[in-house]
Design a protein around this nucleic acid. Structure first.
Lengths: 207, 207
DNA sequence: TAGTTACTGGTGGTCAGACCACTGTTGGAT
DNA sequence: ATCCAACAGTGGTCTGACCACCAGTAACTA
């Protein structure tokens, strides 16, 4: 078998990686052309059908754009259409919601900890202001509050995952019960109580 | 051409629709089995490769699950495919790759902690076995090791995010430095040292 | 020369057939 | 009744073959 399959991983997943590497190595910009499917197949040592499955995945994500007779190109725009499509599939299974809630708490906790070391007095004051100026809803306030924290965490990926998950949270679903929570967190920043953050969030994990 | 192509629409898109219809007509429930690829190809009048491209898309969306030697099944865990989406086009950016490493560590840490309360002696023995039976690569070993832990964490969403992120890790990128790491973790399970897990992972976060 | 046409090579789109590796079952031997 | 080997079915992959389409280029015309 040409494509190295490390443990059940399908070929197209490996190919995705390789194509990504290729894009990186060649410094491809949006709009640039990718090698032809046949060439990719030869270069990466895979069958053309496997290459195509990988490309379909990328196309589905809006990463590339294929034009018959011309070739495959890096997409110039990030299509968000996919997001909406996916949103329509959101499931209502109970367990998933519980999982989701935990995941969000975990992300918020870690962001709060990462942000800990970058938190200035000004930032703290800002947080304070957020919880006092009444927002439309608790959920909005919560979102703004943590957007701020995620920003200070300096990890955009973490922030992105969070915002995505957060969008899925049913509106009715409670976020954090009381304002005490936010005040407590701010207080920990003020008093440099790193360990306290862990404890504060830990209580909220359901299981 | 067997598959009706209403101008420019690709075959697999039409096939997606047809499969949807089929699912509806047959009242398929999550977990039910789909016809085999060959049968679908015959029934829908398309080539098997086109069927596969459609199935790949559905799999990518988390709608189905394929099991080699068994068949294709409706996923019991639909939704949050969004994560995948996000992952891929977020990861195009540069800085995010550094963030990625941290995120993965965070996810693994939290999974390890969630799993803590469900860990039996048998499970621990299993983990032990994994690190001793030499795998193809360290990355593979690591993956198997944590797949086990994520399973015990009882949070499928967390696991899904992790596996996705993990796929994006460049092969060369080191995971965890030494085998000591795994042994340490196992030891903490044995000695019921919950706090130790936090500390163990904390050291690995870059910033 | 300038403009049109026809040709040609390359590309994605699709299909058919062939293996392989894996799974669950079945039927016979014990 | 139990066990195990052979088997049929399935997804995973590769190959080779067409087709439809596009972009140049060469040839032809005016």
């Amino acid at each position: 078998m040409a494509v190295s399959m490390s443990h059940k991983q399908k070929a197209y997943q490996g190919i995705l990686q390789k194509i990504r590497q290729y894009m990186d190595a060649q410094h491809l910009q949006p709009g640039d052309k990718l090698p032809s499917e046949r060439e990719l197949a030869y270069t990466l040592g895979a069958g053309r059908s496997s290459i195509r499955e990988a490309l379909r995945a990328m196309e589905f994500l809006g990463l590339i754009e294929t034009r018959r007779g011309e070739g495959t190109f890096l997409s110039t725009y990030q299509s968000f259409q996919t997001v909406e499509l996916l949103a329509s599939f959101i499931l209502q299974e109970k367990q998933t919601r519980l999982d989701l809630a935990d995941v969000i708490i975990i992300l918020e906790k870690e962001a709060a900890k990462l942000a800990f070391w970058n938190m200035t007095k000004q930032d703290i004051a800002h947080l304070q202001a957020i919880i006092y100026q009444e927002a439309d809803s608790l959920k909005d306030m919560h979102a703004i509050f943590f957007q701020c924290i995620f920003k200070k965490s300096n990890n955009k990926l973490l922030a992105k995952i969070w915002s995505l998950m957060y969008d899925f949270l049913a509106v009715e679903q409670e976020i954090s019960n009381h304002k005490f929570f936010y005040k407590d967190l701010i207080h920990m920043y003020e008093t440099k109580d790193y360990q306290g953050i862990e404890t504060l969030f830990e209580k909220m994990i359901l299981k």
